[in-house]
Design a protein around this nucleic acid. Structure first.
Length: 604
RNA sequence: GCCGACGUAGCUCAGUGGCAGAGCAACUGUUUCGUAAACAGUAGGUCGUCGGUUCGAAUCCGACCGUCGGCUCCA
């Protein structure tokens, strides 16, 4: 968040056009004034500028309605029109406490400021100056900066978007506040552009495309968060799976199959039960034993490793599986295919010597880059999640192991020249991790891939290898999932291509469109020959006009439309239309087969 | 899980206490067509579920289920 704010702050600072950061920050103050006028007893939390706009959190006596939002917005326009100057002043902690004596959240913020924390409660390098900004009757604890006066906020670039719940300080044990989100831009055009982008994002949403293209469904009768892959979605998934397994076998992974359930004791040994019980399904009693739906594949893979003795020369051992797991995600967290309760991880566990860690991580990153470039993924960032050395309770012990693992990943990143951000305190409890972050069409950030070093499980399962001197040593484990879950990856892929999957992934690669009934026989013949060449092809023999068939194929994002009429039947050809709208004119059937097969081979 | 909104035909949506609707899709028939929607007809509904108020509920109230937007969480 802070990075985005800096970007907004750096932008076009000039006398005639204030930065979006200032505009949004100021809009938040104006909104807070309007809300407080409506609810004089309301309590204020924080109201920062964010990407695309701003928000402010309030503790109010009742829930806000869309109606309220309209009223607040029109009051904001009045305050803007009145052009009140923003006045800055520095106050002492005592003054501040007096000023905000009826504002408990502000008092908490003041306390934090005294301890050198920012408004999110993070200890930062900010100076501990306490300051306020005042306009009209409204004064807020704030470090600024703001526009000179409310009139500099472009009223025509402003819009309140939604109201949502948000916990104070992001802590679910603390009160839930009401957050009003607004968007603000320099002018009406920019606002409209932004609204258009949101509209466009909705059109690309994988949930909508999944239904329109008949790729998958999630049905109440089956259960929330449980995905049904329809034939066309399954076709795409199968292509992806084949591609991944091939690439991994080339990279030295050994693929296995293991069952979806296992004894509860196995997950007690692994520690998952103790740590993640709340998001695991309840045990199933079978005879006298308890079994659970597995939330992770690692214990099964570990047991494969343990089934034989390993020499130091055999390492690394890389056990891979497209492993299906089940996790109880809270109901409010489910989203289409990107957050579900049963999913298949592109999983593997690498068992290696400590000195191989860096090299193995490099291998993992190279694999990720290979896979991502093949599916046209460019827009991603690496995030290195480290432990918080001050929070010792959250992580397994072993400073030396942590340091080694963290530096192994860092060195691997440096060696392949990857840029990355570091996230302190974001490591798993058993080791640091490297996430690949991507954004969905609505700009929400997700981890597409999670890769972790683990020195905890080898300990728990007492894993060993025999070293050169004959002594028993402890291997290190890497959990790695280059594309994370197939479900989530599929969601990204769908949104990225807006449903127009590359030819090699398209469930239907070509539709043959006969112009009139008398051409159906020839169309079938063309389809048969393409099918023999390995093309996924259908004939649209419905009683519809050619234009309607083209439109339907176009909306189904079929890459090749092959129109056949009298001329084509005569010439042993088909007229090729691409989904881009391009007309390649008539081409011999053999050539068309070659074109499509080339696309598939080149993964276009 | 928490806050809020929403749930009517396959899809998009209208209907705010008095006979459940439209467009598209589907099906049937006519048409046999040259690069994004032919024409006509037919069928399709426990208005998310359960309970309550009422002479009467899609409509008002309650609970539950689900979806959406956030928050929290994500091994």
């Amino acid at each position: 968040m802070s990075a985005e704010m800096e970007i907004a702050g750096r932008r076009e600072e000039s006398a005639e056009e204030p930065s979006l950061y200032r505009i949004r920050h100021s809009a938040a103050h104006v909104m807070a004034q309007a809300v407080l006028e409506m609810f004089p007893e309301g309590k204020l939390a924080i109201g920062p500028p964010i990407e695309n706009g701003f928000y402010y959190d309030f503790d109010l006596p009742r829930s806000l309605t869309p109606d309220d939002l309209e009223k607040i917005e029109s009051r904001m326009r009045e305050i803007i029109a009145a052009d009140y100057p923003f006045e800055y002043r520095v106050v002492s902690a005592e003054e501040a406490r007096e000023l905000f004596r009826d504002q408990p959240y502000k008092l908490e913020l003041i306390e934090g400021l005294e301890r050198g924390q920012d408004e999110y409660g993070e200890s930062g390098s900010e100076s501990t100056v306490i300051s306020t900004y005042r306009h009209d009757s409204f004064e807020d604890l704030c470090r600024g900066p703001h526009v000179e006066s409310t009139g500099r906020i472009p009223a025509e670039g402003l819009k309140l978007m939604s109201v949502a719940g948000a916990y104070w300080r992001g802590d679910e044990r603390r009160p839930m506040l009401q957050r009003i989100y607004g968007t603000a831009w320099h002018n009406r055009e920019e606002l409209e552009q932004h609204l258009w982008r949101l509209e466009e994002a909705r059109r690309r949403d994988h949930r909508r495309i999944g239904r329109d293209l008949d790729l998958f469904s999630v049905q109440e009768e089956v259960g929330p968060g449980l995905v049904l892959w329809h034939p066309k979605g399954a076709r795409i998934r199968r292509e992806l799976e084949n591609f991944i397994v091939d690439a991994e076998e080339r990279a030295g992974y050994q693929h296995v199959y293991t069952p979806h359930i296992g004894k509860l004791d196995l997950y007690k040994t692994s520690g998952h039960w103790q740590h993640y019980r709340d998001s695991m399904y309840s045990p199933i009693e079978v005879e006298t034993e308890e079994y659970i739906l597995r939330p992770m594949n690692c214990p099964h893979h570990i047991m494969i490793y343990k089934s034989s003795l390993h020499s130091y020369r055999d390492l690394p051992v890389r056990i891979a599986e497209l492993g299906t797991v089940y996790r109880f995600e809270k109901s409010g967290e489910l989203t289409g295919m990107s957050r579900v309760r049963g999913f298949t991880i592109n999983d593997a566990h690498i068992f290696c010597r400590p000195d191989q860690l860096k090299q193995e991580f490099i291998g993992v990153m190279e694999l990720i880059q290979e896979l991502y470039s093949a599916v046209g993924f460019r827009d991603y960032v690496y995030r290195l999640s480290l432990r918080d050395p001050e929070d010792r309770e959250k992580y397994v012990e072993g400073d030396e192991m942590w340091d080694n693992a963290e530096s192994a990943i860092r060195e691997a990143l440096d060696e392949i020249g990857a840029e990355y951000e570091e996230a302190r305190g974001e490591a798993a409890f058993y080791g640091p991790k490297l996430d690949i972050m991507v954004r969905d069409v609505l700009g929400r950030e997700f981890a597409a891939s999670t890769n972790q070093v683990d020195f905890y499980l080898p300990e728990r399962f007492d894993l060993e290898y025999v070293d050169a001197d004959g002594s028993r040593k402890r291997p290190v484990m890497i959990h790695r999932a280059p594309i994370g879950s197939l479900e989530r990856f599929f969601a990204f892929l769908t949104e990225q291509h807006a449903g127009a999957f590359p030819v090699w992934l398209s469930p239907v690669q070509a539709v043959v469109i006969p112009i009139a009934d008398r051409h159906v026989g020839y169309a079938e013949e063309v389809a048969r020959r393409l099918r023999e060449a390995g093309v996924r092809v259908e004939v649209d023999s419905r009683n519809e006009r050619m234009n309607a068939k083209i439109r339907d194929a176009q909306m189904q994002k079929v890459p090749y439309m092959l129109i056949v009429g009298d001329r084509e039947a005569q010439a042993d050809s088909a007229s090729v239309r691409l989904r881009s709208g391009e007309d390649l004119k008539a081409k011999p059937v053999e050539e068309i087969a070659r074109m499509i097969c080339d696309d598939v081979r080149e993964r276009r």
